[in-house]
């Protein structure tokens, strides 16, 4: 597992994975669970240690980000098209960002990964096979950290921050009378799906209700072994700053 990088299913026959020496770490979890904040902190932490870091985010490919935005505004997406838009976006990022970065020895931090697509498709269709076949070309990550939260805490948090929107509430599924009811049902289903996958795919589960500093520490502890086992660990010892204190080791909440 350590050296043999694998495709999730039917892979990209025209690409060779054997020389991907970087590390691929995915942070998963439902909407509003704090993924992007933690990824920012992780990137800082890793870069201070001298690791090259590339971050990649769901639906942020050059090819597809605008298309997906426009498509979602129309509210007329069927299940297949929605999942295939995600898959196209992912493939574009995989081939243009993730694989080249891994080849150059970067650590890639992925804000969401294929499991998000699995969860969203499964709650819409009840079918788990097709979507996994579709994403067969995905590279299996070295580590998946799953920020787990319960739906009640999540609802409060989302209302306090970004507010609930149509798609995060799964309004296309007509689960509830209003945004709030629908949000709770939809996100509840997603969390159930993630929980099942956590066992199936051996996610590292992190309780996202903890204070951010604690979560960050746990994430770092999970990532650390990957770095040490990485034959690429820098030979150059970290420079001691005159004061003896490394800023990156300070509290991540600052």
């Amino acid at each position: 597992m350590e050296d043999a990088r694998q495709y999730f299913g039917d892979g990209l026959a025209y690409l060779n994975l054997s020389d991907l020496k970087g590390r691929l770490i995915a942070i998963e979890g439902t909407d509003g669970v704090g993924r992007s904040t933690h990824i920012e902190l992780l990137q800082e932490w890793l870069e201070v240690q001298g690791y090259g870091v590339v971050t990649t985010g769901w639906t942020r490919s050059n090819l597809m980000s605008k298309t997906i935005e426009v498509a979602k505004q129309g509210n007329i997406l069927d299940r297949w098209s929605l999942s295939l838009l995600y898959a196209t976006d992912f493939a574009d990022r995989l081939e243009h960002q993730i694989i080249p970065a891994l080849r150059s020895g970067f650590i890639v931090l992925a804000d969401r990964y294929i499991y998000t697509a699995f969860a969203r498709d499964a709650v819409r269709s009840g079918d788990r096979k097709w979507i996994r076949d579709v994403f067969g070309f995905a590279v299996v990550p070295d580590l998946v950290c799953y920020l787990r939260i319960d739906v009640d805490t999540l609802a409060l948090r989302v209302i306090e921050t970004s507010g609930m929107n149509y798609w995060e509430s799964g309004m296309d599924m007509k689960l509830g009378a209003d945004l709030y009811d629908s949000f709770k049902k939809y996100q509840g289903l997603l969390i159930e799906e993630f929980d099942k996958m956590a066992e199936e795919f051996k996610f590292e589960v992190v309780d996202a209700r903890k204070p951010p500093e604690e979560i960050q520490d746990i994430l770092r502890a999970q990532i650390e072994p990957l770095l040490k086992n990485n034959g690429r660990k820098p030979d150059i010892p970290l420079e001691q700053s005159p004061s003896g204190a490394l800023p990156a080791n300070s509290s991540p909440s600052s």
Partner: peptide, 26 residues
């Protein structure tokens, strides 16, 4: 994508599948 020649065999394939899915449904 075609114009900027940015399509890979896989994104080319997936875009056509998306088009097909959409037409199948509508």
């Amino acid at each position: 994508g075609k114009k900027s020649k940015a399509l890979t065999p896989t994104t080319f394939s997936l875009l056509h599948a998306t088009d097909f899915a959409n037409r199948l449904y509508h």
